[in-house]
Amino acid sequence: MNQLRRTFLKNTGAAGTIAVAIAAGLLKPGQVLAAEWNKAAFNATTTDEAMKLVSVAGAAESKDVQIKAPDIAENGAVVPVEITSKIPGTTSIMIFVDKNQNPLVTDFTLSNGAEPYISTRIKMASTSHVRAVIKAGGKAYFATKEVKVTIGGCGG
């Protein structure tokens, strides 16, 4: 009887520790995002449609959103892009490539001290405008930059 009780206590104790670790965010179950992957937006075939689906339609052009990308990309499969936002309270950064089959490339959500800066590499099917859209304080802003692509990176 005593032995059983001891085992029981030991087991619940261990389970308790795991529960605490989960609560503290140390051991997130699966470490998967809260929000669902927005399939409709990523499958949209025009920038306008994709922007509507991620609720940034009607974004205002702003010089405070900066895109660093090459003027000419030799290889459309690997185009380095850096987005910096100088607008205070930036919470999301999205990248669209207008002429890709599916213009929405990425959708980043920033929190807990992440700076409004993202650097990544994207594929471009052809010469196109790269569009960075950011959300700040419930409003959306965008900037574009044309990148000339000599060899496309999607399909073919």
């Binding site: 927005n38 490339v105 929190s111 992440a114 990544t120 590499r121 994207i122």
Partner: peptide, 24 residues
């Protein structure tokens, strides 16, 4: 353990993706 960046990606992120970000 605290989330600083969440991202949804499409297939147009390059092969062997590079991701750079900054945390204050």
């Amino acid at each position: 353990g605290k989330t600083v960046l969440e991202a949804h990606w499409g297939a147009a992120v390059s092969k062997n993706p590079f991701l750079g970000f900054k945390v204050k």
